[in-house]
Amino acid sequence: MATKKSYSPHTWAIGQVESLGHTTLESIQGVGECALLFAKAVRMLFHPPFRVPLLFRHMEFIGNKSLGVVLLTGMFTGMVMTFQSYRTLKDFGSETVVGGLVAVSMVRELGPVLSSLMVTARAGSAVAAEIGSMRVTEQIDALEAMAVDPVQYLVTPRLVAGLLMMPFLAVFSDLIGVLGSYLVGVSLLGVDGGVFLSKVYDFVTFGDIMQGTVKSMVFGLILTLVGSYKGYTTQGGAEGVGRATTEAVVAASILILFSDYIITVFWQS
């Protein structure tokens, strides 16, 4: 039986600091590798061969197949937002602006962010798992052996698909969210339908739609890139694939929320 290791509080604290430093270095290294992967993926975008059917398949997977869950999320978000804000607005006698409030929130924030998070959970995890299992089963090495650039074959089409499809998903989410808000506000809470819509048109500006679109493009890029990176750098067997998938979802979600904040702050100027 191995003697029990005795840790002094002193060494324990040092150990914690050490692990913090290790994590930081790893994160920075990860960011750097991620950036390099992104740069290579972009570079490969302009190199033949152009695998258009492959791109379409990823677009279908990220876009079409995520539509259901995104619409469901947007619908319920709009409905709940309407219920919650209506009570507060009623205190100020301005319950008619509930439509405008919900629409602005949906277009600027909730539509892009929530649909991106849903797509991260659905497609980002799948990207990480796919590429990760290819890595652990050495299929990526096989690709290289067949002189197929794995980044161009695996990563580039996914990034493009995320970039292109995410804005559409976000705008569908916006519209279904406003529809849900309309149903709740007009049918259940008794706000006049015409006033509701006119407030929506008054409140939402073209700039809001632009902001939402740009955000969702960035989010689409983030979730595919993080998924690809986590999959690409998977180590260990099936366990490693599972870890990579989890890490991809967590990291992508955090990055989406963080970049949302950054974009919102800098958009104002």
């Binding site: 277009v107 499809m165 705008v171 569908f172």
Partner: peptide
């Protein structure tokens, strides 16, 4: 999908 999405953005 892309067509519908584009229409949705333009419409809104």
């Amino acid at each position: 999908f892309v067509l519908a999405g584009t229409l949705a953005i333009i419409l809104s």
